[in-house]
Amino acid sequence: MAQFEVTLAGFGGQGIMTAGQLLAYTGIEEKKQVVWLPSYGPEMRGGTAYCTVVISDTRIGSPIINNPTAACVFNRPSFDKFSPRVKPGGLLLVNSSLIDVTTDRTDITELLIPANKIALDAGNARVANIVILGAFIGASKIVSYEKTVEVIRSKLGRKKEMLDINLNVLEKGFKLALDIMKKAGKKEKA
């Protein structure tokens, strides 16, 4: 890996910024260079809030990434805005609980993750961001699952009950992505 960029996008309150920060923290723990850049521009209500995380083995140049290696989209406006921008060969993680469309692109790998459903089933709809984070790590392997668990323990560990839910859905997202990637790999070979 030279450099990997991921844009996380959704509406305010979906934990987009937090998920991106957790990823950035994990990157640091793995001794990588990281940049986390939020969108802070004026956005329409119900529009998109997004952040981009760059993880690299070497010094990071531009913090502005127009075409990321991966995008995690949490709502429909984010899907519309970012799915066309993913680099060919990249990843698109779609929160299929809230987005009922799929991409027409054949040059990227799309993962449909019912993040809100998984979060609700685990006991708290607000952890949908951690489901996607887990799925992203499973699909990209950009940071290790173990390190991510460590970071979540230290950053979100204040309430034991919430921590358990967070770690539970992280694993669910992670495993789901592994399964999807496995199947996608088989399809390619066939």
Binding site: Q21, V35, W36
Partner: peptide
């Protein structure tokens, strides 16, 4: 610029 203010880095 605004990015220096808003960006997070180690």
């Amino acid at each position: 610029d605004g990015m220096i203010g808003q960006m997070m880095e180690p």
